[in-house]
Simulated assay, not measured.
Amino acid sequence: MARWDPGAEERLKAAAIALCLEHGYDAVTVTQIAERAGLTRRSFFRYFPDKREVFFGGSDRLPPALTEAVASADGSLDLLQAVTIALVEVGEALLREVEGAKDRSVVIAGSRELQERERTKMADVARAATEGLRQRGADDATARLLGRVAVAVFETAFAQSIEDDDPAGSIAAHVNAEFSRLAKLIDG
């Protein structure tokens, strides 16, 4: 077997999801994941530092992508419009990249450890949105508030999108619907 097996990372992710759906996250070992993927335990650690990261591999690219998308949105847009467009852009890209998003979400929902890891990752995303808003000229309080609200909208819209037949195609509708729902709640 080649040292860097083509497709190994994707096979590891698929194996982890399948095994965790069958047995639960806590009952599955790295060795079992590697064996299901046709690899060794050592190979697993070439791609992921620990078992949790098999579900979050590549997530480190999300915060800088969001900062850039918010900061570089058309200068004529207000802050809310800029963050909305950025969430859609990044959400579409994420949904195209994440294989088995629906099953992944089921596994995460069944594990406190993975839920905590997801909260940590989403806090990084909120900081990224906040930074993008600051780069657009938002004051600190506004940037922090809108950055956190944007992530809440994104999480809700993303969860709804993965239930759809065309997840990447539906993220815009869900992001816009969630911001509209929020506006209605605020208006009373």
Rank of each mutant, 00 (worst) to 15 (best):
E131F: 09
G91H: 06
E53C: 09
L114P: 00
D103N: 04
F56G: 08
S59V: 10
V54Y: 01
L87K: 09
P49W: 04
F48D: 11
A82Q: 04
T67D: 14
V98F: 01
G132N: 00
K121H: 14
L133S: 04
G91E: 07
I85L: 15
D74S: 03
R119D: 14
D50K: 07
R112G: 15
L146W: 00
A101Q: 01
E89L: 10
R52T: 13
V54Q: 06
E53A: 11
G75I: 06
D78C: 07
I108N: 00
E97F: 03
R52D: 14
L77I: 05
G57T: 02
I108L: 05
L66S: 07
A123P: 03
G137E: 06
S111E: 00
L80K: 15
R112C: 14
S59P: 00
R119E: 14
L79V: 06
F48Y: 15
A69G: 11
G100D: 02
M122K: 13
G58S: 05
F48S: 12
L146T: 04
D74Y: 04
Q135A: 15
A101M: 02
A65V: 09
T130C: 13
D60W: 09
A126Q: 00
S111C: 02
L77H: 13
V106T: 12
R117L: 12
T120D: 15
T67I: 09
L79I: 13
D50I: 07
L94M: 10
R136A: 05
P64R: 09
A71H: 04
E68N: 15
K102M: 06
A93G: 12
V54K: 06
Q135T: 05
G110V: 09
D78M: 10
L66V: 11
A69D: 12
A93F: 04
R136C: 03
E113W: 00
V90N: 00
G110R: 02
V125T: 13
A65P: 03
R136K: 01
R117Y: 10
T130W: 03
A71T: 03
D60Y: 04
L94E: 10
V83T: 12
V106S: 03
V90M: 06
S59Y: 13
R61Q: 15
R96D: 12
P64D: 11
A129V: 07
F56S: 08
V106A: 09
V70N: 04
R134Q: 04
V107I: 05
G58P: 11
L80P: 15
K102N: 02
V149P: 08
L87S: 14
A128Y: 07
V107R: 00
V70I: 15
K51F: 06
L94S: 13
L94N: 08
R148E: 10
D103F: 02
R148D: 10
Q115N: 03
Q115T: 08
M122S: 10
A73K: 00
L145W: 02
R104M: 05
E118A: 15
T84Y: 07
G91Y: 06
R117P: 07
G110F: 05
L79G: 12
